[in-house]
């Protein structure tokens, strides 16, 4: 869906957003973290979390072999465990992933736009996006221009997201805010709205490549933004925390937060994802524990 706003309008709306009280936000996130999820509800949550993972490899050392191994894991993580939502790779690996996952329903997501810094000219970022889509990417994970955002050039950020959205065509667009670089909750909220006004299908916290990645308060704040955006426009936008979510306990905290902030409408992998790599094995080990009654170990899940 194209934005009906001009860049100036979007920028001015975003600047007028009310502030966020950091302590209150963190207190709410901490409160949600105290939820205790046991037995049947835990089993349900673990499978849901598995199905929401964008199983990710984003390394210079990525090879077709590595990506095929990851794709196999995404398809059949362990026994009767559900598939993950997608695998997430660099554009150069999209074709390999696409072939490995052909006909499976597991999607291929690709980071593009000069990931992770985005510090390349816009035409290069657009070409990057188009090439990923041509190679078969179902979803594009773009990074916003943090430099322009922090310099106050919100209109430029808005126009760039719109341009990438156009370049992505039918692929769903996840807009990475890189919240660790935006530094304040007020800016995270502004960036969330700016991305949504520009046509984001998902807003995503992080690249996983900076010091601070997804945190529960930041993700909660982004959830509040998509909730409010739908209330205002009728358009539903997804949320994807990425980086730093490594174990089942953390994943369940996020799901509890989705449950109590957004509700059922977002409790599906169409609207909520985890950008993660090591999380999957921890979920699988916990899954085994629930089935067998004893704790599992790393040798009982596959290294991919």
């Amino acid at each position: 869906m194209g934005s009906i706003l001009s860049g100036a309008e979007a920028a001015s709306l975003v600047r007028a957003l009310p502030g966020v009280d950091a302590v209150g936000l963190e207190a709410r996130a901490a409160g949600l973290s105290t939820r205790s999820v046991k037995t049947t509800s835990k089993a349900w949550a673990i499978d849901l979390a598995i199905s929401m993972i964008d199983l990710t490899t984003l390394e210079g050392a990525d090879t077709p072999g590595k990506v095929r191994s990851l794709a196999a894991k995404a398809l059949r993580p362990d026994g009767d465990a559900p598939s993950t939502a997608a695998v997430c790779v660099y554009p150069s690996m999209v074709a390999v992933a696409k072939e490995a996952l052909a006909g499976s329903g597991v999607l291929v997501a690709s980071v593009a736009t000069g990931f992770p810094a985005g510090q390349v000219p816009l035409d290069v970022r657009l070409a990057d996006t188009e090439s990923a889509v041509r190679a078969g990417a179902d979803e594009i994970d773009m990074v916003i221009n943090r430099g322009a955002f922090l310099a106050g050039d919100l209109e430029r950020v808005f126009h760039e997201i719109k341009a990438v959205k156009a370049a992505a065509g039918d692929a769903r667009l996840k807009v990475i805010l890189e919240t660790g670089e935006l530094a304040t909750y007020d800016d995270v909220r502004r960036a969330s709205w700016l991305a949504m006004y520009a046509g984001a299908d998902f807003i995503k916290t992080s690249t996983g490549k900076v010091g601070v990645n997804a945190t529960l308060p930041v993700t909660l704040l982004m959830m509040q933004a998509v909730r409010d955006y739908r209330a205002l426009t009728g358009v539903q936008v997804g949320v994807k925390p990425a980086g730093g979510i490594r174990n089942t306990k953390d994943a369940i905290k996020y799901l509890v937060t989705v449950n109590e902030t957004l509700g059922d409408d977002w409790l599906r992998n169409e609207w909520f994802r985890f950008g993660a790599s090591s999380l999957l094995n921890d979920l699988l080990m916990q899954r085994q524990k629930l089935k067998t009654g004893h704790y599992s170990g790393p040798d009982y899940v596959t290294v991919d």
């Binding site: 509800s41 835990k42 509890v256």
Partner: peptide, 8 residues
């Protein structure tokens, strides 16, 4: 629906 089981 995400229902929490009893957590006594």
């Amino acid at each position: 629906m995400f229902e929490y089981a009893p957590a006594p």
